[in-house]
Nucleic acid binder design. Structure first.
Lengths: 231, 231
DNA sequence: AAATTGATGTCGGCC
DNA sequence: GGCCGACGTCAATTT
């Protein structure tokens, strides 16, 4: 990994065209050839970058640019598309290289899959008398997150999202239409469950007779921990 | 901006829990307090990070960790949520600080907005005899990209996407339902226009009687350039 | 390989 | 400040 701090300007062309006026920035060149161009603020997203696989070449600086103070020009070309990033370097304030080795990678816990596990284990959150039929119940257009049976013997299809917006309601609507045609399951009620439900999504769901259920992840995890301790 | 190359391990807790085993990585501390933790590969996304606004504090290293080789512990706490990133530093291979100043930012040259302009100017691509009513035609649930009239005097609502997937078809469907109730406009046909239309989206659109139109951005821009030259 | 879908998405525009 | 849609979305998983 090479780290360069320099005054620079850049131009990107590919899926869009963008340009970056001269300023002092951090340039990171990774072992796989990818390049990141970071300012001293914003978020984790670079101002400009090139993803691997790509190659970095030093191209010649024309006289006019040299006269304007450009000391080097990097051309970073993507190997599978015509995406290209050109960087003009002016003053270089820092330049160092480091051996990092391979990274073992990130271990994650607690995403949508986890919410599904927790709700399946605590299916009573839907109301007394509910029982789980199965998780990831298959249909022609993809699996329904959870299929359950209510106290009256009716079927309940549940779509789970971390953030519940309008797309999730549409998705559940499609499942309900399909499942409702199955005489073994019909009639099928819908429940839209999410850690957070957007107002628009709630309106649409309610309009379609779909119930909304806000999930409290910490509380659900807490119950799970208690269970874990009991057994 | 502070750059540190060090052997480190990290734990993130917040919207999810994640951990990162010990390895040599780049740590970037930006002026706004945000922290990025990069490996020497992958993409522009860090392995772990904390977005601003946040504060970095040096916390005490307990004896056990110190015995295991931890020389410093950073706790990066988000200021508006309970997101937290803890980083244990082992060997530090590089540590430097740099003044970067404020960045003037990126100048972009858009795509979807441009597609809309181009199609409005070349409305004949829908078929002979089409005329533009207006772009961004307002409705109660948001503006329709383009509203046009066909040769027979019927209304056509057009939704434009760069990549046409199922969401776009749903969006257009909602517009059509609403516009179709307006006696001054009804009946209203739908056209789903995109640079690329996903098979699922095409099936759904066709099933609902919505026409699909694949847009050739380069060709449309070419026509536009010719026009620009003629006038 | 193509398609689908979730993401600690992030980012910008508009209300 | 919140909501909503686009993104050079990226990246993992499944068909």
């Amino acid at each position: 990994m090479r780290l360069v701090v320099a005054s620079c300007a850049a131009r990107y062309s590919g899926r869009l065209n963008a340009s970056l006026p001269r300023a002092t920035r951090l340039l990171v060149v990774k072992a796989d050839g990818s390049v990141l161009l970071h300012s001293d603020g914003g978020s984790y997203k670079p101002l400009n970058w090139m993803s691997p696989p790509c190659t970095l070449a030093l191209t010649e600086v024309d006289d006019e640019s040299a006269a304007a103070g450009v000391t080097a020009r990097w051309t970073v070309q993507h190997q599978k598309s015509d995406d290209r990033l050109e960087i003009d370097l002016y003053e270089v304030l820092h330049d160092s290289a480091h051996e990092l080795g391979v990274d073992p990678g990130l271990v994650k816990d607690g995403v949508e899959a986890h919410l599904q596990e927790l709700l399946a284990a605590q299916i009573g959150l839907l109301g007394a008398g509910h029982t789980l039929i199965r998780r990831e119940y298959p249909t022609a257009i993809g699996p329904v997150d959870i299929l359950a049976r209510d106290a009256a013997g009716g079927t309940v299809a549940i779509e789970i999202k971390r953030r519940g917006d309008i797309d999730g309601v549409e998705q559940l609507t499609r499942y309900l239409e399909l499942l409702g045609r199955d005489p073994l399951l019909a009639p099928v009620r819908g429940v839209f469950a999410a850690q957070e439900i957007k107002p628009q999504a709630r309106v649409l769901a309610t309009d379609r007779g779909i119930a909304c259920l806000v999930l409290d992840y910490d509380a659900m995890r807490g119950v799970d921990d208690v269970d874990a301790r009991l057994f």
